[in-house]
C-alpha cells in the first residue's frame, strides 16, 4: 500500500475545502476487491413498462387509424396562413401580458413590503381579487367592459366637466381586453413570486445594509432586490409557460389567438378534431421550446443558489 501516514497534514490554502492528500493513490489496490455484484431484479417494473408501452401503442394506432380523422386536413391547415397568424397573436399576447404582469407584480410585491398601510392593504386586496376569480371570468368581464362604461372620459372627477371622451369599444378592442385580462391576472401571481423572492433573501442582508447607514429603501434597491431576482427568475419562467397555455382562454371573447382561429375555421368546415389537433400540435411545440429554456434557466439559477447557501454557512 502506498498510502503514507503523516503526522502533520499540509495546511489547506485559504479558499480550498481541504485539498487532496498528496501521495494517495487512485482506486483500490487489488482487483478482486472491486465490487461487481448482480443487481436486484425489479420484475414489477418490467411488467409495468411492457403494459404501459402496449397501451400507448394501442392508443396511437386507434387515433391514427381512426376513419373520422382526415390527416390530409391536418396537413392542410398545419402551416396555413390563418393558423400562423393566430399563433403569432398567441405569442404576442403572452409576451406583452407577461411583461406588464411582471411590472405589476414587482410594484405589488414592493407595496406589500412597505410600511405604508394603505399600499399594503391595496396590494393584498388586488391579489385576493385577481386570484380569487377564474381567469376565464376575468376575460369575459374585460371583453364586455364596453357594457359597463359606454364611454371613456377624461376630465375632473366627481364633476360633469369632461375634456375628452371616446367610445369604449373603439379603444378596448378584443386584443386590448385580452391583454388587460391576462396582464392584470398575471400581476397578482407575479406579486406572490416577487414576495417569495424578497423573503428568500436573508434578513441579515437588510440588517447589514442598515447598520452601514442605508435607508430601508436604498437597502432594498441595492442589496435585497438584486439578490431576490436570482430566486425570482425560475418561477417566473414557469409563469410564462402557464400564461402561454392560459392565453387560449381568450378564445371566449374571440381574442384572435391560435384557438380562436382554429374554432373559427372548424365552425365553417366542420373539421373540429383536425383543427384542434393542429392547434394542439402548435401549443405543444411552443411550450416544449419554452420548457427547454426553462430547464436551462433553472439549472443556472438553482446551482448558484445552492452554491451560495452551502458556502456562506460553512465556516
Amino acid at each position: 500500500m502506498d498510502l503514507k501516514l503523516r503526522k502533520e497534514w499540509p495546511q489547506p490554502r485559504a479558499g480550498q475545502q481541504g485539498g487532496e492528500v498528496p501521495g494517495a493513490q487512485a482506486g483500490p489496490p487489488d482487483a478482486h476487491l472491486q465490487i461487481n455484484a448482480r443487481p436486484v431484479r425489479h420484475y414489477g417494473q418490467w411488467i409495468a413498462a411492457v403494459v404501459i408501452t402496449a397501451l400507448i401503442v394501442m392508443l396511437a394506432i386507434a387515433v391514427y387509424q381512426n376513419p373520422y380523422i382526415d390527416h390530409g386536413v391536418i396537413g392542410q391547415f398545419l402551416f396555413a396562413h390563418l393558423i400562423l397568424a393566430g399563433l403569432r397573436v398567441t405569442i404576442e399576447l403572452t409576451i406583452i401580458s407577461m411583461a406588464i404582469g411582471i411590472v405589476i407584480g414587482v410594484v405589488l410585491g414592493l407595496f406589500r413590503q412597505t410600511s405604508n398601510v394603505v399600499l399594503q392593504k391595496f396590494a393584498v386586496l388586488y391579489i385576493w381579487a385577481f386570484r380569487g376569480t377564474p381567469l376565464i371570468v376575468q376575460i369575459l368581464l374585460w371583453g364586455n367592459f364596453g357594457l359597463l362604461f359606454r364611454n371613456l372620459d377624461l376630465g375632473i372627477p366627481f364633476t360633469h366637466l369632461i375634456a375628452f371622451s371616446v367610445k369604449t369599444n373603439s379603444v378596448v378592442t378584443v386584443f386590448v381586453a385580452s391583454i388587460l385580462a391576462l396582464a392584470l391576472n398575471e400581476g397578482a401571481y407575479m406579486a406572490e413570486v416577487v414576495r417569495g423572492g424578497i423573503l428568500a433573501v436573508d434578513r441579515g442582508q437588510m440588517d447589514a445594509a442598515m447598520s452601514l447607514g442605508m435607508t430601508h429603501g436604498r437597502a432594498m434597491r441595492r442589496i435585497v432586490i438584486p439578490q431576490a431576482i436570482r430566486v425570482i427568475i425560475p418561477p417566473t419562467g414557469n409563469e410564462l409557460i402557464n400564461l402561454l397555455k392560459a392565453s387560449a382562454l381568450v378564445s371566449v371573447i374571440a381574442g384572435g389567438d391560435l384557438l380562436t382561429v382554429a374554432e373559427e375555421i372548424y365552425s365553417q368546415n366542420y373539421r373540429t378534431l383536425e383543427l384542434l389537433i393542429v392547434a394542439s400540435l402548435w401549443y405543444i411545440a411552443v411550450v416544449t421550446v419554452a420548457n427547454i429554456g426553462q430547464h436551462y434557466l433553472e439549472k443556472r439559477y438553482r446551482r448558484s443558489e445552492a452554491d451560495y447557501l452551502q458556502k456562506t454557512h460553512r465556516a
Binding site: D207, A208, S211, G213, Q227
Partner: peptide
C-alpha cells in the same frame, strides 16, 4: 447608524 459599525455572527456580506 453609519457612524456605528456592526459585525455580525453570520457575516452578512452582500453575496452579489
Amino acid at each position: 447608524r453609519s457612524e456605528v459599525g456592526m459585525v455580525f455572527q453570520h457575516f452578512n456580506l452582500f453575496g452579489h
